[in-house]
């Protein structure tokens, strides 16, 4: 229910420019998280340093989008779909900014652990989590540009998968730490990296909810599956022997 153009063309232009900026910010964020993940996988300190520098551009765009939204609310008194679009832009931009920060945090950790050897099993688990989180982010940004609620809903439900991998990674990392205290430094950093990816997934679901609201004007009418069970996980020394 949109497509008709505003009588005031400059208003139409502002809405379009807001959309473009979100798309641009989404692209930058996706790129940044992808590079952070690559840096972690390849233990590439140079790439990680780039990521840390690039986050500035995302922050800059966030400010631009917010300023534009505030100015539009003040000058245009937006209604209905326009109002929802501007509110959605503000919400999405803040989720994207957080996602950028989490990516940057992964990159910072790469700088601390890039010289350490990582167990191949862990790397595998991290990789499947990363590719899932990245795919989710890409899908939700597509859902936004296409105004596709179905796609947004799929993203919303699929977050459970990221949570599931995070749960098992959490368990595994604890197990490694117990096996050999020399792993603790590396594993703690990896645990935070995994947690960051899990948080990226949460922000991605927030965006999915915003897309749903933007298009239909209503909240998603269902209970979100909560998959992060790590708050209840405690690995005892006995578990380590049983597992191996």
């Amino acid at each position: 229910m949109s497509s008709t153009e505003h009588i005031v063309t400059s208003y139409e232009g502002e809405l379009e420019s807001l959309d473009k900026k979100i798309a641009q910010m989404g692209g930058l964020t996706e790129n940044l998280v992808g590079q952070a993940v690559d840096a972690l996988r390849l233990r590439d300190a140079d790439l990680a340093s780039h990521v840390i520098e690039d986050d500035v551009h995302i922050d800059q765009l966030e400010r631009e989008i917010e300023d534009q939204a505030i100015s539009m609310i003040a000058r245009r008194q937006p209604m209905a779909l326009d109002l929802r679009q501007i509110m959605a832009a503000v919400k999405i931009t803040s989720d994207l900014e957080r996602i950028g920060d989490l990516g940057k945090n992964i990159a910072k950790r790469v700088l601390s652990i890039h010289h350490e050897k990582q167990p191949s099993q862990l790397v595998h688990g991290m990789r499947s989590m990363q590719s899932l989180a990245l795919a989710q982010l890409k899908n939700v940004l597509d859902a936004y540009t296409e105004r596709n609620t179905e796609k947004a809903l799929s993203v919303w439900y699929a977050d459970e998968e990221i949570d599931a991998i995070y749960n098992s990674l959490f368990r595994e990392l604890l197990t490694y730490m117990m096996e050999d205290p020399r792993n603790i430094g590396l594993c703690t950093h990896l645990l935070f990296c995994a947690k960051n990816m899990e948080r990226i997934g949460d922000h991605t679901t927030n965006i999915a909810e915003t897309v749903h609201y933007l298009v239909l004007g209503s909240e998603i009418a269902a209970e979100r599956p909560k998959g992060d069970k790590t708050t209840k996980i405690l690995v005892e020394p006995g578990d380590v022997e049983n597992d191996s």
Binding site: M1, S2, T4, E5, H6, I7, V8, Y11, P78, M79, A80, L81, D82, L83, R84, L216, G217, S218
Partner: peptide, 15 residues
């Protein structure tokens, strides 16, 4: 915030 009809939406948003 969420008109059901497209004509309403077009009118109140100035389209």
């Amino acid at each position: 915030t969420n008109p059901r009809n497209k004509k309403t939406q077009d009118y109140i948003t100035g389209r």
